[in-house]
Amino acid sequence: MEFIVSASTDIGLVKSTNQDSLNVRVYSTSIGKVVFAVLCDGMGGLESGEIASASVINAFCKWADFRLPQLIAAGFGDQDIKREWTDIAVDMNSKLKAHGAMRGINLGTTLTAILLTSERYYVINVGDSRTYEIADRAEVLTQDQTVVAMEVRNGIITEEQAAVDPRRSVLLQCIGASETVVPDLFFGQTVQNAVYMLCSDGFRHEITPEEIYGSFCPGNMLSAEQMKQNELYLIELNKQRSERDNISVITIRTY
């Protein structure tokens, strides 16, 4: 299987810093091409949100550079990925907490990451960034770890109420400010001729799933240039609709 990748990030209309961090890389390996992408939405005053998101990105990229080749050589299953990624998330949580405590600040970050081989996808998620699989529709692979999403799942409030709930940006957990971090892991078969998309919450509040599908459906994502163009178009659309947050997106086209 082949992959084309693209990524874009924008500081948005209001914030003075871009606290989102992202990275996407393609490796040629003995099991064919492999993509690793990771996206973090940092939070905390001044530059601390950037520190949080960037350090988690670094930790995962280091894993991809050094540990992934070993795993590929030895062969690996879902549980291996789950264990190793969970360890990194838990470890980074303690490190960021210690960093914050030393300086008397609160900082934290969300995390969503995907490993794509030609056979299988592996996704980790903490917080409210998302990973989508877009083939014949835009399907969210992750589950938001937010207070309102949980209440919707438990039937306490409706989707409509959640959208206007004052608590809508409260995360159940994040890396750096939770006592314990329990990431969600998702696995499945990689779909050929699909688009995998990772985004921060700033990318998806103001635009509809239909609009995401309209721009990112596989038929409209045929080259790196086109993918970049579509990413920028949706980022602009978000800004036209007064999105206040940082806006980030990674897209991966399989063929």
Partner: peptide, 22 residues
């Protein structure tokens, strides 16, 4: 502040009205 993402771990047991708008 509504626009800011927050984490439950940081805000402790905040009551619904502490999130503003209520």
């Amino acid at each position: 502040n509504l626009a800011d993402t927050m984490c439950l771990g940081t805000i402790g047991y905040a009551a619904p009205e502490q999130f503003g708008g209520m």
